[in-house]
Design a protein around this nucleic acid. Structure first.
Lengths: 234, 234
DNA sequence: GGATTGATATGATAAATGTCAGCTTTTCAA
DNA sequence: TTGAAAAGCTGACATTTATCATATCAATCC
């Protein structure tokens, strides 16, 4: 059994090494550990919805969550995919605002809910932690800027290509070489910001051109270099 | 003469009230004031270019700067317009990364350059300041998420309408009722993420429909409510 | 097994947007 | 003042993308 499973202490949790919690002192971490609640979230269930007031943050132990925002025309735009080691909801807790995004499990998840008190307290008391969170948010902001440019300047085809490269880079491949994270065509379309049909059509095209192969909804990247070139406009 | 002009002390600078610098202690502010350099930037000149290493941040005293990123197809995407009271370059300094955006003056500017040492030092020593910067960045991140959704889900026409509402809200109008910030058609197109010709065409349409009136490059919003509705998809 | 449902796929068509070319107006410096 | 350069504008056309309709496939439930 994975030694990080169950109700282990944050102090021993290896997940912590990958996120801002590593900048906490031993005592601070102990407090977090005492107040945290481990939750299992089934595929399709929501961690929270857009507009909801968050009383804490979620540290992802396993699984993937999509962070999305509903647009006026009724479509969901997926802004980020959060996986093992990432902390969700920090932005809203820090800004003391209601959630600007919804978080829904893409597959079965295990998360730790950390009440905001211990986070906010540490933020005000431990500059190392504050700066660590700040660095992390600065990084997210840079990524967001890049997404803005891609959304407005790249074609749908380029963005689809990029989405697959992103999935490979961030979630890797399984033993058979398929992308480890399997998304529905609709979810892919919502990442890319296009109609589901357009997305499916482009995937079909890519298959014909030998850039991808598929098996059911699973997708394998067959010519990464060509996908890369395509996504950059060649 | 404006009492904030010239080489005044940061302690007395009224601009400071609007940005993160207000969370600094008296001594910290003194250090900043001693090391800062006031600069005049002419319209069209750059504060810094994408990829450049920043040795500090810029506090805007007067004028407006466009923050933009060059896309692969050679177009500039304007990600943000920064005006009086805003601090530019914080993200790059905090993340210790090269600038991910270029900053170019949209009109004549007066800015204070603050070397990064005093910023970084205060960040590590004064949690209030760190949290203040963090709040600010959390806000920017939320705005960026909204831009992503708009870019991917709204039509060009909706985005143009929204751009004018944004300009009115953030920069106001002059005595005659024209938008106080005058941008070239190309800059508007680069905010919206569309071709300059498409942007011009839509402005012409809006004029015909009585939503806008123009005088040279100056633009007046004639029917704000209708523009609002249009931007939301009605 | 057969019925039902949701996801995937494809075609036909319409709408939105970009590109290119040419023209007019404004700007700015010699 | 004037003439070149830049910005603004418009039309024609090509391309991209969305929408609607329909068909197929796969999973699930009785």
């Amino acid at each position: 059994m994975d030694k990080d499973e169950g109700h282990s202490r944050c102090e021993q949790c290896i997940i912590r090494q990958f996120n801002t919690l590593r900048a906490m002192s031993r005592e601070e971490l102990k407090k977090v550990s005492d107040s945290k609640i481990t939750k299992k979230i089934k595929k399709g269930e929501a961690l929270f919805e857009e507009g909801e007031k968050l009383n804490g943050v979620f540290c992802v132990r396993n699984g993937v969550s999509k962070l999305s925002k509903l647009s006026a025309n009724g479509k969901d735009q997926i802004v980020k995919l959060a996986t093992r080691g990432e902390v969700i909801g920090q932005r809203s807790v820090i800004a003391e605002e209601h959630a600007n995004l919804s978080a829904v499990a893409v597959n079965d998840m295990e998360v730790c809910f950390i009440p905001k008190d211990s986070i906010v307290h540490t933020l005000n008391a431990n500059p190392d932690f504050a700066v660590e969170v700040l660095r992390h948010m600065a990084h997210d902001l840079k990524e967001a800027d890049e997404v803005i440019v891609n959304m407005s300047q790249k074609t749908v085809k380029q963005r689809v290509a990029e989405a697959f490269l992103y999935l490979k880079k961030n979630f890797g491949e399984d033993k058979e070489g398929f992308l480890a994270l399997t998304l529905s065509r609709e979810d892919i379309a919502n990442v890319v910001g296009t109609a589901t049909e357009s997305c499916i059509r482009i995937i079909s095209e890519f298959k014909k051109e030998g850039l991808l192969t598929t098996s059911g909804k699973r997708i394998k990247i067959a010519a990464e270099r060509k996908l890369q070139d395509l996504s950059e406009g060649f």
